[in-house]
Design a protein around this nucleic acid. Structure first.
Lengths: 159, 159
DNA sequence: AAGTGTTAGTTGACGCGTCAACCATAGCCG
DNA sequence: CGGCTATGGTTGACGCGTCAACTAACACTT
C-alpha cells in the first residue's frame, strides 16, 4: 500500500511519525483531563470550560452563542449542557432584556464555588501533562504549531 | 482569580497561550478529520483506523485486544465497532484456534476495498491540515512535543 | 400592519462510547 | 480430576453530542 505511483502523496516515515505522535496525543490528552476533572470535581472538561468562561465574564454572565464559541462547541451542545448545569444549580438562564432572542447564562454562587474548587486541580493537570513536560522553547513552538494547524482546519475563526 | 498567592501555580500568559492553542487543536482536528472521512467514505476516524490496522496486518487479521491498542480505544469500544463493521460486511470475527478466548478480526474483500478507497482522501486531509501546514523543523518538533506529553499522560504505554 | 427573511436558541431522536456486569476459555495447584 | 483465578471478549443500560426540525423574537419591506 506504499511505494506505487498511484498519484497519492503518502506520508514519509518522519511525517508519519510526527502524525502518529500528534494523533496519540489527540486521543489520550482529552481523556486524561476529563478523567481528572470528573474524579475530583464531578465535571466534564466541557462543563468546566463553560463555567470557567462564565466566571471570567462581567456579571459572571454571557450569551449562549458567545459561550459556545469560547468553549469550542456547537450551540446545540451548549444548550444541552447548560440545561443540565441549570438543573444542578450551577447556572441560570434568562432572556436578554434588549433582544428577546438572546439567552444569557449566569453563574450562580454555587456554580462559582464549584469552578473555584475545580480550577486548581485542573490547572495542575494541565501543568503536569503539558506545560512542565516541555521546555520553554518547545512551549513556544507548540503555540506556533497549534496556530498553524488551526489556521488550516478552521480558517474562518483563526484570523 | 489570578495573582493572589493561594498556593496554586496558575498559568503565565505564554503558557496559557500555548495551552489554548493546543486545546483548540485537540477539539477541532478530530472533528475535521472525522468529517472528511464520514463525508467521502462513510467511515468514522476510529472505524478507519481499525480497518487500516487490519489491512496492514498479515492475513488482514489481528486479535481484538491488539487492534484496540493500535486504534487507541478500549476493548469494549472496539467490540461494538467491529460488530457494526461485521454487520456492514467489512469484517468477520472468529475465535482463535489455539486459544478459544481470543477473537480475531479479519478484513473482508469488501472491507479491503473500502479502506483502499478511503485512504487517499484521508491522507490528503492529514497532509492539508497538519503536514503541509508546518515546516520540516516544526514537524520534527511536533514529534518531540507529542512524545513528551504522551510520556506524561500515559507513562505505561510510551516506554 | 402584514409578510418575509434572518438570527438565537431549544428540542427530540438517534448513534456512539463508557462503565459495570457478565460469560467463556485457559492455566494452575492440590 | 475438581475447583480457582486470570484473561479475553461481549453485552446492555445509560449519558452525551449531533443533526435536523422547530419556535420565538427581531428586522426589513411594502
Amino acid at each position: 500500500m506504499t511505494g506505487e505511483d498511484d498519484g497519492v502523496r503518502w506520508l514519509a516515515p518522519d511525517e508519519l511519525a510526527a502524525w502518529m505522535s500528534l494523533a496519540a496525543l489527540m486521543f489520550k490528552l482529552p481523556g486524561a483531563l476529563d478523567y481528572q476533572l470528573q474524579r475530583d470535581s464531578g465535571l466534564t472538561h466541557f462543563e468546566y470550560l463553560v463555567m470557567a468562561g462564565l466566571s471570567e465574564s462581567p456579571d459572571r454572565s454571557r450569551r449562549m452563542s458567545e459561550l459556545a464559541g469560547f468553549a469550542n462547541g456547537s450551540l446545540s451542545r451548549l444548550s444541552h449542557v447548560v440545561k443540565r448545569l441549570e438543573k444542578r444549580g450551577f447556572v441560570v438562564r434568562r432572556p436578554d432584556v434588549e433582544d428577546g432572542r438572546i439567552t444569557v447564562a449566569e453563574l450562580t454562587d454555587a456554580g462559582w464555588e464549584q469552578v473555584v474548587a475545580a480550577a486548581p486541580g485542573h490547572v495542575a493537570a494541565v501543568r503536569e501533562y503539558v506545560i512542565d513536560a516541555l521546555t520553554p522553547g518547545q512551549l513556544a513552538q507548540l503555540k506556533e504549531i497549534g496556530d498553524a494547524i488551526h489556521r488550516k482546519v478552521d480558517p474562518a475563526r483563526s484570523c
